[in-house]
């Protein structure tokens, strides 16, 4: 299934673009997707931490992802 992955801040620089479409297996969890992303973009592992958001909400590792979900790579935030 295809999912949209948005990247912000330093994650956008690591991925090289603000958005990409990934083809992943059905029922993949957020935790499994993180592993895939880290294999593709090893520099993610150099970050202090990062989270995935699914449809504008922070995701748990076990949360499963559906086709057409909007995933976002959330590196350490620094607002304020």
């Amino acid at each position: 299934m295809k999912i949209n992955v948005l990247a912000f801040g330093i994650a956008k620089e690591i991925v090289g673009r603000p958005k990409e479409v990934l083809d992943v297996s059905d029922g993949i969890t957020a935790g499994e997707l993180k592993v895939l992303l880290e294999e593709k973009y090893p520099d993610l592992l150099k970050l202090r931490s990062y989270f995935l958001a699914v449809n504008e909400e922070y995701a748990t590792e076990e949360q499963s992802i559906k086709a057409d979900d909007e995933i976002a790579l959330i590196p350490p935030v620094s607002g304020g």
């Binding site: 912000f8 801040g9 620089e13 976002a72 590196p75 350490p76 935030v77 620094s78 607002g79 304020g80």
Partner: peptide, 17 residues
């Protein structure tokens, strides 16, 4: 989810990354 990048006279970096 807000991020800031600091720009110095001799470089730049994402804060807290």
């Amino acid at each position: 989810p807000i991020w800031k990048k600091e720009f110095f006279e001799d470089g730049e970096h994402w804060v807290s990354a």
